[in-house]
Design a protein around this nucleic acid. Structure first.
Length: 478
DNA sequence: AGTATCTTTGG
DNA sequence: CAAAGATAC
């Protein structure tokens, strides 16, 4: 018998069982703790499940289409792909584990009550089958339970909470994307169940209302970092004052990227920290990131945030039911330019400047005495950054029923707010072109222009003094 | 992260 | 009497 050559053949280990990386609100490759864990274990299956139990607004669906496309592309660049399934999360995961022989499932945490329930159910079901299920720090600076009062209770007020967060020092340093990841092949029985991004039918068809969104946004991790880098390099300077002016491009525009986890709060924190300038502008910007974390924490500790007044005395609030007024607010036809500009910016771009969000929310809940949940529902359907925590948190803040809320009597006057924060009327003229030719002195109160008042712009749908008095009377009745 | 109204101040 | 300050909602 002929002898084989003396060199040893490279030993091929039997294929290791794959680990499923379940992507949810963390659609990125960098600073992704669960993905790093999966890659370190062996072959990875990158999975996204489009689950109808987690309904999305129209603008979020539009974003998700781009986000999944970008993630699949980014995975393709490292030799992988995104496996997409549609339907119930528990059933799909359970089936996929059986088909692939996966030895583990990993994910980054989410903090909403339904999401936590689903994740806990899945973890229990997998463990019962002897399959490892491991959750990782999600998209916050710190996990909610890491920030507690001396008594061990949740903070209810932002400022002491934020002080405690700052005393904790730096959040976890961002992880790089895993290198030399191996990806598990798709078994043929699984291939039949996987769907492509277009199959999810996330984009609007007739009418196609997404033109303004396409013009404004590029979903995905690469675009998130381009925006973060340019913001930190060029725009943080002057942020504290310019951020209040909606006509200025002074805000970071990172909110939808955070919503979908194209960038993590930890990455933002460290990018700002790396500039070494601990000035008022960076402190102001980081505290805005802090408000996002505080909203997530509030949802974790008060799971009813999205549906129930955190101050229960508001349960007796005599909200008005006025569908015509709600429609006028939604359509940007209230007769108050700063309100209408904001609502049209929202409809057109899927986003609204923060200052204007507060003004339109105050107007709906106070002057129109409309339940904040109606406003939150509209925002959830139209914002690309709609978030299960931030959206209701901020509505409860404005309406006065949140824990650390604006006092109910803080009622924004849309005319004086417009004059203060859009003094030259630039923002209003951009979004409400039918009044663009009004002189500055009438730009926030067109009805005072008399004969110069343009036709085709509605008169105010509610009297400011009357609406304010009615809101204060309703509040006093509680 | 406010507004309206009243009081005081300073020219 | 306009502007700044104080106070209640």
């Amino acid at each position: 018998m002929m002898m084989l050559p003396a060199h040893r053949k490279t030993v091929t280990l039997p294929d290791r069982a794959p680990t499923i990386m379940w992507f949810r609100d963390d659609l990125r490759l960098m600073d992704n703790p669960a993905l790093c864990d999966a890659a370190a274990r062996g072959p990875v299956i990158c999975l996204y499940i489009h689950d109808p139990a987690f309904p999305l607004g129209g603008a979020e669906k539009w974003w998700l289409h781009g986000a999944l496309t970008a993630l699949d592309h980014d995975l393709g660049a490292c030799g992988g792909r995104l496996w997409i399934m549609a339907g119930d999360s528990r059933e799909n995961l359970s089936w996929l584990v059986g088909q692939t022989g996966a030895e583990g499932v990993v994910w980054n945490r989410r903090y909403g009550p339904h999401a936590r329930q689903v994740d806990a159910d899945i973890k229990a079901a997998l463990k019962a089958r002897g399959i490892d299920a491991c959750s990782h720090p999600g998209n916050m600076l710190h996990e909610p339970w890491q920030v507690r009062t001396k008594q061990g209770t949740p903070f209810r007020v932002f400022t002491p909470w934020w002080r405690a967060v700052q005393a904790m020092g730096a959040p976890l340093p961002p992880l790089p994307a895993p290198v030399r990841t191996t990806f598990a092949p798709v078994p043929s029985a699984v291939a039949d169940r996987l769907v492509a991004v277009p199959d999810l039918a996330l984009l609007p068809v007739r009418p196609d209302w997404a033109g303004g969104l396409r013009g404004q946004w590029q979903p995905g991790e690469a675009a998130a970092h381009a925006r973060l880098d340019s913001f930190v390099a060029e725009q943080v300077h002057g942020y504290a004052t310019r951020r209040e002016l909606p006509a200025q491009p002074a805000t970071s525009g990172l909110s939808p990227y955070l919503r979908f986890g194209h960038v993590s709060a930890r990455q933002i924190w460290h990018a700002v920290d790396a500039t070494g300038q601990g000035d008022q502008d960076t402190a102001c910007f980081l505290s805005e990131v802090g408000w996002r974390d505080f909203a997530q924490s509030t949802l974790f500790d008060f799971p009813d945030l999205g549906t129930t007044n955190l101050r229960s005395e508001f349960n007796g609030m005599p909200w008005r039911h006025d569908p015509a007024a709600l429609r006028a607010w939604q359509a940007g036809k209230t007769g108050y330019p700063i309100i209408d500009a904001g609502m049209r910016e929202l409809w057109h771009t899927g986003w609204m400047h923060n200052r204007v969000r507060m003004i339109v929310a105050s107007f709906l809940t106070k002057h129109l005495l409309t339940d904040w949940r109606a406003g939150a529902a509209w925002f959830a359907d139209t914002l690309v950054d709609a978030d299960a925590a931030s959206n209701p948190f901020n509505w409860q803040w404005v309406a006065g029923c949140g824990l650390d809320a604006a006092p109910y009597f803080r009622i924004f006057n849309p005319v004086s707010q417009g004059e203060k924060f859009d003094p030259a009327g630039e923002y209003v003229r951009k979004w409400v072109p039918e009044i663009a030719r009004l002189p500055d002195k009438y730009i926030h109160a067109p009805w005072k222009a008399g004969s110069v008042a343009p036709a085709g712009y509605p008169p105010p749908i509610v009297d400011l003094a009357g609406g304010r008095a009615r809101a204060l009377a309703a509040w006093k009745s509680l």
